[in-house]
Amino acid sequence: MTPALSVLDLVPVRTDQSTGDALAASRRLAQVADGLGLTRYWVAEHHNMPGVAATNPPVLIAMLAAATSRIRVGSGGVMLPNHAPFVVAEQFALLEAAYPGRIDLGIGRAPGTDPLTRYVLRGGAGSTEEDPVARFAEYVDEVRLLLEPDGVEAQLGSRRHALRATPAARSVPTTWLLGSSDYSARLAADRGLPYVFAHHFAGKGTAEALELYRTTYRPSAEHPEPRTFLTVNAVVAPTYAEAERLALPNQQAMLALMHGADLFPQRLLEDAELIGIPEEQRSLAAAMLRRWVVGDPSAAAAQVRELAAMYGVDEVMVHPVGGATEGTPRDASPVREETLRLLASALAN
């Protein structure tokens, strides 16, 4: 079986790039994915990180959908506790109206940032009574209801008022729940929603989460069957040695994140090689690489097919993480583009 191929993008910022450069590189990457006939292109939500420009999924989706013609564009995901449900519904109702049939609303429960930024994002909310995470299921239901063309009615004082995310919706975006634990798997199954486990960074628990989701799934009118796909980090190059080399800058960034070290923009490959990986972290770095799709086109395509069969999915979303070398145009990420081209070609053969 050849699974459909999709893309996850965190809009990485390299040491030689401005935010504008990183956005331009992601726009080009989305256009490559669109031209290759890939299924969807999702952007993440992370805040206050020196190496990640994906801070606002709706703004990014509008930019990427405008720059492409057919690929579905969505959030992977909107971290719903950071936002008022009505605002999220308004944003995605407008996106769906502008690009009907092309918008995915992926919703997550994690903060996607550090405690201070989370506090600021939530306007100081954080007590047990106010904590938006505790109301996540309620917020998911609110967003879905508000996205319906007829909206909802709300009581304010003695009067009832109509509340719509947009005046004259003709369609709604597809809502997905995202997670790295069994919480979202249970909630998605209960609500009859598509679900994605964050395999690309969790690395374990994927099979258990998907089994829980599938076995407890309650069919909905929109989704009579459970629906899911797999996410995985990927670097594809003409040889394994080159792919492994190109993975180094992202390995270093992930190791820093895992060890609570200071975060930094993504290093150029030559700078990353000068620093290397400390001896005490090499076994962890090697284990990390084994969970990624890294290799030449034929081997990478075989890995993708194997992963799809292992987890029973018909779509794999790759997060292209290859680094850049000195002299790379600042508004491009050729290694990430080449990962998509090589992998798509190998899967087609």
Rank of each mutant, 00 (worst) to 15 (best):
R170S: 10
R227H: 13
L230C: 00
A168T: 09
P173A: 00
R164K: 15
F197S: 05
D190N: 12
A202Y: 06
T175V: 15
A162G: 14
L248W: 04
V172N: 02
G192H: 10
A162H: 10
V235Y: 01
A237F: 04
H161N: 09
T206K: 04
R245G: 01
G203D: 03
L178R: 08
G179H: 00
P226Q: 07
T206A: 09
P219S: 11
E244K: 14
G205L: 00
T216M: 09
V235W: 02
R227T: 14
Y183E: 05
S180M: 10
T166V: 09
S171V: 09
V232G: 05
P194F: 08
A189D: 07
R170F: 06
S184A: 11
E225N: 13
E225S: 15
R160S: 14
R170E: 13
R218I: 14
T175Q: 03
P167A: 12
T215E: 14
S171P: 04
P173H: 00
Q251L: 14
S171R: 11
Y213P: 00
L178S: 08
R186E: 03
Y217M: 10
D182L: 13
E242A: 13
T216D: 07
Q252W: 12
F197R: 05
R160W: 14
E222P: 04
W176F: 03
L248E: 06
R218A: 15
P219Y: 08
P173E: 00
A188W: 12
H199T: 12
E225R: 15
Y213I: 02
V232L: 08
H199R: 08
